[in-house]
Amino acid sequence: MNIIVCIKQVPDAKDVRLDPKTNTLAREGVESIMNPFDRHALEEGVRLKETHGGQVTALSMGPPQAESVLREAISCGADQGVLVSDRAFAGADTWATSYTLRKAIEASGEFDLILCGKQAIDGDTAQVGPGLAGQMKLPFVTCVQKIRNLDDGIIQVERMMDDGFDVLELPVPALLTVVKDINDPRVPSLKGKMKAKKATIKILSAADIGAEEQCIGLAGSPTRVVNVFTPAPRGDRKMFTGSLEEQVDQLVDQLRSYL
């Protein structure tokens, strides 16, 4: 069971500021952490490895300093870290990021499962996981709260929904994005930290993964941030009271009044 866990280094949510010029997150001088959802994906990968054997590879796209989250991943049980890093990747949106991760994975060899956090806490898009699965034409499930079973190339998972959960099966290789409920991540171990300190993090450039220039970085990104603003408060709220029937009648009357 070879597992790839996609990890993003994000600014610590305790200290978030916007760059007034670009309307994007100001990252300078802000402490960086492993995206919290990715910690849960990593823990699940390590647990699968402990049960089924195999290797866990932590993969990240980011600037050279993102190497530190890959070392942290090794201290939490990953076997190796791969950093996809190149100035040409700068300004990538979720599409270009998905493309870049796909190329990096294709350059790295065989795998059975890709695990991602549900979303990153900086961009909050939740698009890279599904985007990567789309790029790779892999079956995927988002918001996984439990892996129920893994047997004979079929993985059975629970997908968190607003009103409960779905039980889904999919063949591996596959991609899953996970929510925090899936597990309680371990604290990095002492032996893991010592291993991480000595580990060599493999660094891949755009040329190493054979990425096409027009598909990466700002040039490969269809998204443009036009404006970031706080939405104005919505209009008045009205609470209906009385029995259920009375409340429904009041609601219908209210809706009719708008017609």
Binding site: R186, V187, P188, S189, K191
Partner: peptide, 11 residues
């Protein structure tokens, strides 16, 4: 058990 996973018992 969490402490064990973090290798604290080995120090």
């Amino acid at each position: 058990e969490d402490m064990a996973k973090a290798d604290l018992f080995s120090i």
